[in-house]
Design a protein around this nucleic acid. Structure first.
Lengths: 185, 185
DNA sequence: GAAGATACTTACTTATTAGTAAGTAAGCTA
DNA sequence: TAGCTTACTTACTAATAAGTAAGTATCTTC
């Protein structure tokens, strides 16, 4: 893995553990055994670094969508595959949802991050809404409310679950996840 | 309102808008037209300031519980009263849940905040679990899963809803809230 | 009316922050 | 082999951070 990729991974790590204002270029460089100027060489501004982290999440989401398209036959499987994103965060030493982290510290963020963040959230909500609508159409889901509302609830519930897990432990996460899935069928 | 109370209110404001690491004593003092040392006079360390904010939230929660005990006859009303805490955050220029904010930045927080935070979350979950259990016993609720699981889902969903509202707008919040309530009955 | 407490200000310190300018060693390219 | 590019280091800067020590004005209490 290149230094640039390592920096990006560490930035992601810190954003999801400490928040955007809870880490410095020195934190990253010291872990990698390089100087903070080397981090600035790859990502001149912290805002650009955060922007790349968001882009990476967007790509990761698009990969999930693609795999769901190819491999998953049931809509439940598609939703479950989507939720592995959150599972992975839990496994990575109790990371919080990336979007949740940015949203929480939104007023202390460079304003340039707003647009890419909104685009990512909109893409996720739109895809999940579609999957839920189709799943209901196919008779697989029987939830109350509109697919859009339900999609918003799932994203919020999962993001909140990761936060709650940090304080009360991981069982909370799995219980919330299973309820969200149960309320779908 | 005393300067001390004003400082506390501003700290709460910043924690819920910027996160613990997204504001400074200078941010607070400049708004109040005093010097940063005056803030240190009332709250010597930032950790103590944050601790007082948590205590304030604990008191606020206990007031809600007390009022629910006295005024609310149905369990639905008790839950609705509890959810006004989140409504108020939304109204206050889209504040995020206080606990959610601390949880998100947990790894970049003074470790002394961990215990009071966990105590607050435990108290909330415990009370809400009780209300949901009694409401189901009384035939008022018919949700799936255990009351504890359902309580965790409601707290997570509401915290996530406030975060989602910051990015996609306030309608998301109300839709999520109404779904959480609908899934109860 | 003297003594102490309250609520600050002035004037610092030390540490950390994002960011930069200039230099360098190693590898690739014409 | 001369020159360019890549990936850094060295050595800064200016701003901001939390926190402190000493001084001061005002109010309260005996």
């Amino acid at each position: 893995m290149s230094t640039k990729e390592k920096i990006l991974d560490l930035a992601e790590h810190y954003i999801q553990h400490n928040g955007y204002n809870g880490f410095s270029y020195h934190d990253i460089s010291s872990v990698l055994g390089i100087k903070n100027a080397a981090v600035h060489y790859h990502f001149p501004k912290k805002e650009e670094l955060a922007n790349e982290v968001i882009k990476k999440a967007q790509v990761q989401f698009e990969n999930i969508v693609e795999k769901a398209e190819v491999y998953d036959v049931t809509y439940t499987d598609k939703v479950r595959r989507f939720l592995t994103i959150y599972d992975n965060n839990l496994r990575k030493e109790n990371r919080v949802c990336l979007i949740g982290s940015f949203a929480t510290n939104l007023d202390a963020l460079p304003p340039g991050l707003n647009a890419p963040l909104a685009a990512l959230v909109a893409a996720i909500k739109s895809w999940l809404t579609m999957v839920l609508a189709q799943g209901r159409e196919a008779g697989e889901f029987h939830f109350r409310g509109s697919p859009g509302q339900r999609a918003a609830l799932i994203c919020s519930g999962m993001a909140g679950a990761l936060q709650l897990a940090k304080i009360l432990g991981n069982e909370e996460y799995y219980e919330i996840k299973s309820q969200l899935l149960n309320d779908l069928v």
